[in-house]
């Protein structure tokens, strides 16, 4: 099995605070990996280090064997796409335009082509549009493609963000809390969506607090606590581990046990 992402000893310090401490993570082709941990454990910072939004203080990240660049657009170009915990769409663009922006790295038309509008330009635009429509249908937003992103209901905005990320043709997709704020129906739909993405042989790393979602979906789960990786393993092992329970709920004091 090919390793898609390899993060080794990634560390991020903000002044005196070490947000991420020497974290290793490997993701294989077509795998869904969960990243859990209590609030403030450094999960999102770790994501930011992977995607070039933050420069790690130490450590190395490689994607399919080559080191990932330290700039978000280059990371996306290399094949790692992401979504954000607090949805970050382009609110005053339509759903279709949002996804079309995702095609930016995979298209080439420059200023002269845009002004000159030769046959090549038209072909590329048509291809981008077809691909974007296909992706909107894929995530179930085909009918609202001409709606403004900000006018979409919350669940649809999450889906649209995923469609936009998919439009960059990623080999690895990082989802930051994809079901945050969703009702059970929407969460169930997201499970299906993640499975469908996995079937397109795109590896996924997701941060999540919904444990049923994580344990039902992931092939492997890593637990971050206070910036350090506490453990990593199949969902059943993580679920059964005392240390994980302790990290979330705290250790029983002596009075409790007595």
């Amino acid at each position: 099995m090919t390793i898609v992402l390899q993060a080794s000893a990634v560390t991020k310090r903000f002044g005196g605070l070490t947000a991420v401490k020497s974290v290793d993570l490997e993701v294989n082709e077509g795998e869904v990996v969960g990243l859990i941990g209590p609030n403030g454990a450094g999960k999102t910072t770790f994501f930011n280090c992977l995607t070039g939004l933050e420069t790690p203080t130490a450590g190395e990240v490689t994607y399919r064997g080559t080191p990932l660049p330290r700039r978000p657009d280059l990371v996306t170009k290399a094949g790692v796409a992401r979504t954000f915990q607090n949805i970050r769409l382009f609110p005053n663009m339509t759903a279709l335009e949002n996804v079309l922006v995702g095609r930016h790295t995979r298209t080439r038309a420059g200023v002269l082509a845009a002004v000159g509008r030769g046959p090549r330009y038209h072909r590329e635009e048509r291809e981008s549009e077809d691909r974007s429509r296909e992706l909107l249908d894929f995530v179930g937003l085909g009918k609202v493609r001409n709606e403004l992103a900000k006018a979409l209901p919350y669940g649809d905005q999450r889906k649209l963000e995923i469609a936009r990320a998919l439009a960059t043709d990623p080999g690895l997709l990082l989802l930051d809390e994809p079901t945050a704020g969703m009702n059970p129906n929407e969460t169930a739909a997201t499970v299906k969506l993640v499975r469908a993405i996995q079937e397109r042989s795109i590896a996924i790393v997701l941060i999540e607090h919904d444990m049923r979602f994580v344990f039902g979906l992931c092939d492997r789960v890593a637990v971050l606590v206070q910036g350090e990786k506490l453990m990593e393993g199949p969902p059943s092992a993580v679920q059964a581990d005392e240390r994980v329970v302790a990290a979330y709920l705290g250790t029983p004091t002596e009075e409790d046990t007595a």
Partner: peptide
């Protein structure tokens, strides 16, 4: 220009620069 890949990227930057960067611009 406004109705092209470049124009869309400009509007995306105006709307949310960080998200635009993370989308590959």
């Amino acid at each position: 220009l406004a109705e092209s890949r470049i124009g869309r990227a400009w509007v995306a930057i105006r709307e949310d620069e960080l998200a635009a960067a993370a989308t590959g611009i």
